[in-house]
């Protein structure tokens, strides 16, 4: 099961003992990791809601907003890290800024798509009832867009948890630290532990979002 070309040493103590001995360490890395990943998603979501609503309200702003998000989305994260490193140094901020931008780019699409998917007759009915456009957006269109936004949020969260590992390359200790250290010491167990823990957190938060989405939108549940 060794990757071709690379040889890894195994420690004298059993790997299992190493793992159980480092649970505190994993937990500490996880906390930084999740803090960075989730704060980034939260910032991205907040901005996406603001900008997405703007795009929905003023249709002419829609194409330029989409163009900007495409650029953000395609921007190589390492280049962003390198650039920010020279300004903000090896801090959480250096990681949170590009991760937020990435989540934002993803979520703006969800928000605009969610709002645009609200059936026209719902929009017209609200207008005809005497809703002004801001109130209609906030109390009708946005809540009706929640299922689409949650779907986007799940993707953004999983991506963000995965991307936060990169932070360790610039010295911010996230779970990516396990890859960096494992690689340096040729210790396969540590790398595998890193992958498993990151995947586990991704699954946990995806599941939490799925459940809270179901709870937030009982109206979207279909009889099966």
């Amino acid at each position: 099961m060794k990757p071709g070309g690379l040889t890894f040493h195994f420690h004298k103590v059993s790997d299992w003992a190493w793992l159980t001995g480092h649970i505190g360490y994993f937990w500490q890395l996880s906390r930084t990791h999740l803090y960075i990943a989730l704060v980034s998603v939260a910032i991205g979501l907040l901005l996406a809601l603001l900008v997405g609503c703007l795009a929905a309200r003023i249709p002419t702003t829609h194409p330029p907003i989409l163009a900007v998000t495409t650029v953000l989305y395609a921007w190589p994260s390492l280049a962003a890290f390198a650039f920010l490193l020279s300004i903000t140094g090896p801090s959480d901020t250096t990681v949170i800024i590009p991760l937020s931008a990435y989540a934002f780019a993803l979520l703006v699409r969800s928000v605009t798509e969610g709002i645009n998917n609200v059936p026209d007759d719902v929009r017209i009915a609200a207008t005809a009832m005497g809703y002004r456009s801001m109130r209609r957006l906030l109390t009708i269109e946005l809540p009706a867009a929640v299922p689409v936004i949650i779907a986007g949020l799940r993707v953004a969260t999983v991506s963000s948890i995965s991307l936060a590992t990169v932070a360790s390359l610039i010295g911010v200790s996230t779970l990516g630290q396990l890859f960096v250290a494992g690689e340096n010491t040729d210790f396969l167990t540590e790398i595998i532990a890193g992958v498993v823990i990151v995947a586990m957190w991704a699954l946990v938060f995806d599941g939490l979002l799925l459940l809270s989405g179901r709870m937030l939108t009982p109206w979207a549940r279909r009889v099966s």
Binding site: P119, D121, V122, I124, A125, A126, T127, A128, M129, G130, Y131, R132, I140, P143, A144, V146, T217, W219, A220
Partner: peptide
């Protein structure tokens, strides 16, 4: 317009009910 509309009921073919509300 908004005030005018509140004095007129409007019913459409597809109902136009708000899906997220009871």
């Amino acid at each position: 317009p908004a005030e005018l509309r509140r004095t007129m009921g409007y019913v459409i073919q597809q109902g136009g009910l708000f899906p997220h509300r009871t």
